Every structure is written in C-alpha cells, then in structure tokens.
Simulated scan of single mutants.
Amino acid sequence: MEAGRFGRVASLYNLLSDCGAFGLSTQEAQALIDSMLGVVKGWREFFVSHNVEIRSIDMLEQAILLDCFYRTEPVEAL
C-alpha cells in the first residue's frame, strides 16, 4: 500500500512525506504514528503472553518494525 511520496517504503520519512493528502499536518501525523508505535512496540511480549510459539514470533519479527522504519530521510540512490 502506498502511503507517501516514496511509494510503499515502510519508513517515517515516507509516511510523513505526504500526510497532507490525509488532511494531517506533519505534527498530527507524527502524533498518530507515535500512538501506533506505542501499541506495536510491545507486540513480542503480547504474543508471548498469549502463548504464540517462539518460532512463529521469530518469523514475524522479520516483518514488524524493522530498523529502516525509523529512517527520517531517504537513502541516497546508489
């Protein structure tokens, strides 16, 4: 799903790059993202507490909140 000027890139800079299309200021968009991150950051502990198998959690970890998500600027083209 495209959510910014950089297509489907899963990063803060992309989410904030075109937040006006959703009727949000940068500050409003950042507040929403921060709120969602507050929920998602505890995903691993939540899954463990609900007896999800560790191997399943390890597989999901490869897709949830990768370090690249926190980038605030695009990586320069090679």
Score class of each variant (00 low, 15 high):
residue 49 S to Q: 12
residue 34 D to A: 09
residue 34 D to R: 01
residue 43 W to G: 05
residue 27 Q to K: 05
residue 1 M to F: 06
residue 39 V to I: 13
residue 49 S to D: 14
residue 36 M to I: 12
residue 62 Q to S: 02
residue 4 G to S: 01
residue 54 I to H: 02
residue 54 I to R: 01
residue 50 H to L: 12
residue 74 P to S: 04
residue 29 A to F: 06
residue 71 R to I: 08
residue 10 A to N: 10
residue 7 G to S: 07
residue 31 A to E: 15
residue 51 N to T: 11
residue 21 A to T: 12
residue 14 N to P: 05
residue 69 F to Y: 05
residue 68 C to Q: 08
residue 10 A to E: 12
residue 14 N to K: 03
residue 54 I to S: 08
residue 65 L to S: 06
residue 61 E to A: 10
residue 66 L to F: 03
residue 65 L to P: 04
residue 52 V to N: 02
residue 9 V to T: 15
residue 37 L to G: 01
residue 50 H to A: 08
residue 4 G to H: 02
residue 32 L to I: 09
residue 2 E to T: 15
residue 64 I to Q: 00
residue 78 L to N: 02
residue 43 W to A: 05
residue 43 W to P: 06
residue 51 N to Q: 13
residue 50 H to T: 14
residue 27 Q to G: 02
residue 44 R to Q: 13
residue 62 Q to R: 13
residue 4 G to F: 07
residue 37 L to Y: 07
residue 5 R to Y: 06
residue 67 D to H: 05
residue 54 I to F: 04
residue 47 F to R: 00
residue 17 S to H: 08
residue 71 R to V: 07
residue 6 F to R: 00
residue 63 A to K: 11
residue 5 R to H: 06
residue 77 A to V: 15
residue 53 E to G: 00
residue 77 A to R: 14
residue 31 A to D: 14
residue 77 A to M: 13
residue 61 E to P: 01
residue 61 E to V: 05
residue 17 S to V: 11
residue 60 L to T: 11
residue 38 G to A: 09
residue 55 R to E: 14
residue 21 A to R: 14
residue 1 M to G: 02
residue 77 A to L: 15
residue 4 G to I: 09
residue 70 Y to G: 05
residue 20 G to C: 03
residue 57 I to F: 04
residue 67 D to A: 11
residue 5 R to N: 08
residue 36 M to A: 15
residue 42 G to V: 08
residue 61 E to W: 05
residue 69 F to Q: 00
residue 67 D to C: 02
residue 65 L to E: 07
residue 50 H to V: 10
residue 36 M to Y: 12
residue 31 A to G: 06
residue 17 S to L: 11
residue 33 I to H: 00
residue 62 Q to C: 07
residue 67 D to Q: 09
residue 31 A to L: 10
residue 2 E to K: 10
residue 4 G to P: 02
residue 36 M to C: 11
residue 42 G to P: 02
residue 14 N to D: 09
residue 27 Q to N: 03
residue 19 C to D: 08
residue 7 G to C: 03
residue 19 C to Q: 00
residue 23 G to K: 10
residue 10 A to Q: 09
residue 35 S to H: 11
residue 2 E to P: 03
residue 63 A to L: 15
residue 41 K to A: 12
residue 50 H to N: 15
residue 2 E to N: 10
residue 31 A to P: 00
residue 59 M to S: 05
residue 24 L to G: 00
residue 18 D to F: 01
residue 20 G to H: 04
residue 40 V to T: 06
residue 15 L to M: 13
residue 68 C to A: 12
residue 19 C to G: 01
residue 58 D to L: 11
residue 17 S to D: 12
residue 29 A to T: 03
residue 27 Q to I: 10
residue 66 L to K: 10
residue 54 I to P: 01
residue 15 L to P: 05
residue 77 A to Q: 15
residue 45 E to Q: 11
residue 39 V to W: 10
residue 6 F to K: 03
residue 74 P to T: 12
residue 44 R to C: 09
residue 68 C to I: 11
residue 40 V to G: 01
residue 3 A to M: 14
residue 36 M to T: 10
residue 62 Q to M: 09
residue 72 T to Q: 07
residue 67 D to G: 03
residue 19 C to A: 11
residue 61 E to L: 07
residue 60 L to N: 06
residue 35 S to K: 08
residue 34 D to E: 14
residue 30 Q to C: 01
residue 49 S to M: 08
residue 49 S to G: 04
residue 78 L to D: 11
residue 53 E to T: 02
residue 8 R to P: 00
residue 2 E to I: 13
residue 37 L to C: 06
